[in-house]
């Protein structure tokens, strides 16, 4: 139980910067120093726009993609995720958080010497589906998992 939760949750949201979406992210985005960074994809506010800007067409949910993550986040500011693809010729793995202000969080382009397994840690504003998006032979596949962000306390 945590009575100061609403306040602290706000604090957390402020801390992670995921609250206050009325503020346009674009206003505060830096000048892009690197042409390679896909600004349009990272700025996109809907899944459809993310997919469009990444050139993703009709991704299919696949059991060959595994998204490993805790069901409940221990800390919304640090949520470990791991994606493993069993699909041959996997060349790219991305992580998307549906309910974050901008959904695309990380995209990994894998060279031929890589195993199709990557892990990182994400910030999540609230309980949300997280998507692992895999590209193999030009086609896209997904695995989706709901990760719960909770107030905590009260257990046991």
């Amino acid at each position: 139980m945590n009575l100061e939760h609403p306040a602290s949750r706000r604090g957390f949201l402020r801390q992670t910067g995921l609250l206050g979406l009325a503020v346009s992210a674009a206003t505060f985005l830096p000048r892009m120093a690197y042409a390679a960074w896909n600004k349009a994809a990272f700025d996109a506010k809907t899944i459809a726009d993310v997919y469009k800007t990444m050139g993703v067409e009709a991704p299919t949910a696949s059991a060959e993609v595994q998204l490993i993550a805790s069901d409940i986040a221990e800390n919304g500011a640090v949520v470990p995720v791991e994606a493993i693809s069993k699909i041959p010729n996997t060349t790219q793995i991305s992580f998307l958080v549906e309910k974050n202000p901008t959904m695309l969080t990380a995209q990994f382009d894998l060279g031929p010497d890589m195993l199709p397994e990557v892990s990182t840690r994400l910030k999540m504003a609230q309980t949300s589906n997280v998507i692992a998006l895999v590209k193999a032979d030009g086609k896209f596949y997904t695995a989706t998992k709901e990760i719960k962000v909770t107030l905590g306390g009260c257990g046991g």
Partner: peptide, 12 residues
């Protein structure tokens, strides 16, 4: 006004 106990945050 809400009273309680066992807060889990460092601030508390």
């Amino acid at each position: 006004k809400v009273a309680g106990w066992a807060p889990v945050s460092e601030a508390a």
